[in-house]
Simulated assay, not measured.
Amino acid sequence: MIRLKNVLAVTLGAALMVGSLAGCGNNSSKSADGGFDATQDISVVSREEGSGTRGAFVELTGVEEKDADGNKVDNTTTNAITCNSTEVVLTTVAGDDYAIGYISLGALNDTVKALKIGGVEASEENINNGSYTLSRPFNIVTKDGISDVAQDFINYIMSEDGQKIISANKYIEVANSGAFTSTNPKGKIVVAGSSSVTPVMEKLIEAYKAINTNADIELQESDSTTGITSTSDGTCDIGMASRELKDTETALGLKATVIAMDGIAVIVNNNNPAEDYTVDQVKDIFTGSAAKWEDVK
């Protein structure tokens, strides 16, 4: 009897564990033959409002449209799962067979699959030649009165040395200013903003501090709008933005400098058989016009 109770307890415990895992939001339903079930709802994964990646994505795909009064309206479906960083988008899509999201191309890894857009692969080469349409700039944002150490760091980013780090991290170089020589100024720099720009900025900071050991640089990850606002109010010295500045922002005396170009990869789970969508199909998914995978036409 004791042995039977033990078996029942183990069986019940295993059942409870399976039930708890199924309740974590991981949609892994399969068709009757064990394959991808196209009748399942699409799990749309989006970035938060204020994200430069979201701003660029909705503009480039037509998810953002102008209303009758000429105001821009983001038509991302209200059913979308909202994530506050690139890393969370990646893990969410990787853990859900029926999810689709978008990330910086430089952050792409093998935990997910990037779709071709209009038959064109998301790659550095195709962004350079203009055939991959979902691309945007990585900007740093500054205003007048920048410190000597902050200017020295910017000079490094835009130099041949800094741009080599850009390309080594799978982003696209912009024209560089040649070899870098530091004046070794002393002081603190606060860099804040876009979570898409943050990974490559970490590498740039690490390399610059090896050259100028007098520099103390603090990096704060958030989103593009926060980085721009923080630069405007003096909370940070250099903002990071993965979108262009708005007219209302440049009117505040802010200046954007492109440090790299990046593509936006539309990603799905590795178990999803989809390989290639048009921009219109992506738009239909993210506006909710196509609610199930079988609706993507």
Rank of each mutant, 00 (worst) to 15 (best):
A175V: 11
I100V: 13
A150S: 14
T133Y: 10
E125I: 07
N129M: 07
M158G: 03
V174S: 08
N129E: 07
S195R: 02
S194E: 05
L90W: 01
K203E: 13
N184L: 14
I127A: 08
E202N: 15
V191M: 15
E160L: 14
Y171P: 00
V197G: 00
K203C: 12
K164V: 11
V200A: 00
K170P: 00
S194N: 06
N126D: 12
D96T: 09
F180D: 09
L108K: 04
L115F: 10
K164A: 15
T183R: 03
L134M: 08
T91W: 00
K188Y: 05
G101K: 06
V112F: 12
V174R: 07
E206Y: 14
A94C: 02
D96S: 03
V93F: 05
G95W: 04
N176V: 06
V112S: 06
V93M: 04
L115C: 12
G162P: 01
E121R: 04
S167T: 15
E160A: 15
A107N: 11
K164R: 14
V174E: 04
T198R: 04
N109M: 02
I166T: 13
G187N: 13
G162Y: 03
S182I: 05
S123V: 11
V191P: 00
M201G: 03
K164F: 11
D97P: 00
N126L: 10
Q151P: 00
T181I: 09
G162M: 06
P137W: 08
I165E: 05
K113D: 03
N126G: 11
Y98P: 00
S177D: 10
V174Q: 05
I103G: 00
G178F: 14
S131E: 14
N169F: 01
A94M: 02
I157N: 00
M158Y: 03
K113F: 05
S196H: 08
S147I: 13
E202C: 12
I157M: 14
S177C: 03
G101M: 08
L134Q: 10
S194G: 13
S195Q: 07
F138C: 09
D96R: 01
G95E: 01
K170I: 03
E202K: 15
G118T: 02
G193T: 06
G130I: 13
K143R: 14
G187K: 10
E202V: 05
V93G: 01
I172F: 05
A114E: 13
M158Q: 14
N139M: 12
S195Y: 06
S159C: 11
E206R: 13
L105D: 01
T111G: 09
Y98M: 06
Y98W: 07
A210N: 12
E173N: 12
I140T: 04
I189F: 08
S177A: 09
A114H: 11
K116F: 02
S167P: 02
Y156R: 08
N139L: 11
V149N: 14
Q151S: 14
T181F: 02
